[in-house]
Amino acid sequence: MRNRPNIPGFIAITVLVFFYLPIFYLVMQSFNEARFGGPWRGFSLQWYALLFDRPEVWRAVRNTLIVALSSTAISTVLGTLAAWCLHHYRSRLQQSHYVLVYAPLVFPDLLMGISLLLLFINLGYPLGLGTVILAHITFCISYVAFVVLGRLQDFDYNLIEASQDLGAGWATIIYRVLLPVMGPGILAGALLALTLSIDDFIITFFVSGPTSATLPLYVFGMMKQGSPTIINALCTLFMLATFSIVIWGQRYLYRR
């Protein structure tokens, strides 16, 4: 075995190069002075300056934050409740509940997008930030529920009975026992919801209105028409933002 070429290792390294090459190229190009990308013409921050001059960028950032924060808050509460029920009760109701929470995970985004669009059209509900938030809550619930459910598997229910025996009321139990034990799981679910919401393109594409473009929609619009170098700069900053959330989350969550 020892002297043979390590074929899986070779493939894996090639795959990592394949993964990172486009990203590095994009980041590099965002600092390239050349107008249309291509060969290197020297370091420049002009594309970033041009980017910050655009009011639409700031509006897209604001929309993204409004949508991501509100849908994360609501889906975290709903998803945590669902996880608690799925973990704690064994009944017919929970079997169907499980299917209901599970199904959106395997449902293609495109179908969720068009079906929500038709729902809002049929209800006569105007498309805008409100419909985007409703849609984001819907797809985030299942992710939060399954992340929290995963952490709950280690939860010892005796803790609750012990605190009841010691005279704790439900409010005390929730605050002093449940939240500390479930906290990391809930936070992990919330971070996942946050990044999914910030990143979502297809569902938002279907249910957003004329003034509710989020960052991914704005990037998409720019790709269709616009200076590629400014998009490089925007993508670089966007990537930096998501990576910071993920890395911060990793450090925070896996510290024991």
Partner: peptide, 13 residues
């Protein structure tokens, strides 16, 4: 964790 559109755009470049 990078946005899908960013990945598409990187390849387009």
């Amino acid at each position: 964790w990078t946005n899908m559109l960013i990945r598409i755009f990187a390849w387009k470049t």
